[in-house]
Amino acid sequence: MNSWIRQHLAALRALLVLTVLLGVAYPAAVWAVARVPGLNHKAEGSLISVDGKTVGSEIIGQSFTDAEGNPLKQYFQSRPSAAGAGYDPLSTAASNLGPEDVLDTLPIPGAKDDEGNPDEGKQSLLTQVCARSKAIGELEGVDGGRPYCTQDGVGAVLKVFPDRAVSVNQACPATPFVAAYQGRPVECGKPGEDYASGRTVPIRGNIKAVVPPDAVTASGSGLDPHITPAYAELQAPRVATARGMDVGKVRELIAEHTVTRTLGFMGEPAVNVLELNLALDRAKAGS
């Protein structure tokens, strides 16, 4: 009995000591370090305020869209996000879709999902990229086409059978992006039909993409606040026109808000979208 009591008293003392150290002292030390001048801004989330109102964070991306989700033409647009509904720090993640994800699940007309909502099917990563590129091309007034994409913004993928081929991502009655493949007639895809036995053949097409990769793909975290200088340059004419500004001035602001490689060799130059948009607002207000 005495041994049993001693063991439990020792365990209780260890519990109390560790509770004080790890539950009180350590959090207090971390909090104190976070209050050190120069660190407190980062500890609070690197928030940016304008006229006393928080408008975003230096390290978390955000959308610049209207209530319907349409891009605001007077602002530079961020790269896509796969974190929750977009840029959600509580759902930070990539889509986990890879280069082999090229086949869509076509929506079946009149069908409903388990929750009673209309069946919307499922877009492959390839079709997501194609649709984004097409939309950006229309927004920026450039060719939004890219390899392995059809003109209507879906993945250019065939399922090939001995006597026919099917453009599986183009739901009927769409016209297939090619009429024939190696002597086989090409059909549009029929929702609900099983094409698993066919050979999957992505068709590259003879086209060079104008829209940069970061405009159509999400970052690994889904929270990236930066875009490449190339994507910023693509947007510059549209932003300048919407604001009635000289495009040269807009390009100057892009250059001012372009950060170089870390330590001169790590990563790539990047532009913080929120900071650039705020600089545009200030420039417009001061003009």
Score class of each variant (00 low, 15 high):
Ala93Ser: 15
Tyr181Ser: 04
Ser81Ala: 05
Ala174Lys: 12
Gly45Asp: 10
Ile136Leu: 14
Gly98Val: 01
Ala94Glu: 12
Ala209Asp: 07
Gly98Tyr: 11
Ser124Phe: 01
Val50Ala: 13
Gln7Asp: 12
Gly86Asp: 11
Asn206Asp: 15
Gly38Tyr: 04
Glu268Cys: 01
Val250Met: 09
Ala196Ile: 05
Val168Gln: 03
Pro191Gly: 11
Arg199Gly: 02
Pro173Phe: 06
Ala179Trp: 00
Val273Arg: 07
Glu252Tyr: 02
Arg184Gly: 07
Ala230Glu: 15
Ala236Glu: 12
Gly23Arg: 11
Leu253Asp: 00
His8Cys: 10
Asn169Ala: 05
Gly98Ile: 02
Ala10Glu: 11
Ser167Val: 00
Gly153Pro: 06
Lys42Ile: 13
Ala279Phe: 03
Lys73Ile: 03
Tyr87Lys: 08
Val259Leu: 13
Ile108Gln: 14
Phe177Ser: 11
Arg79His: 05
Leu263Cys: 06
Ala25Cys: 10
Thr105Ser: 11
Glu115Ser: 13
Phe265Tyr: 10
Val168Cys: 04
Gln128Arg: 14
Val17Cys: 05
Ala232Thr: 07
Asp66Ile: 01
Gln182Phe: 00
Asp214Ala: 06
Pro162Phe: 02
Ile207Cys: 04
Asp224Ala: 13
Ala242Gln: 11
Glu115Arg: 15
Thr92Asp: 12
Pro191Thr: 05
Leu234Gln: 11
Ile227Thr: 08
Asp163His: 04
Asn96Trp: 05
Leu22Met: 12
Lys208Cys: 04
Tyr148Met: 06
Asn40Cys: 09
Ser63Trp: 13
Val271Ile: 09
Gly153Ser: 09
Ala236Thr: 13
Glu115Asp: 14
Pro173Gly: 12
Gly153Thr: 03
His8Ile: 11
Val210Pro: 05
Arg238Asp: 08
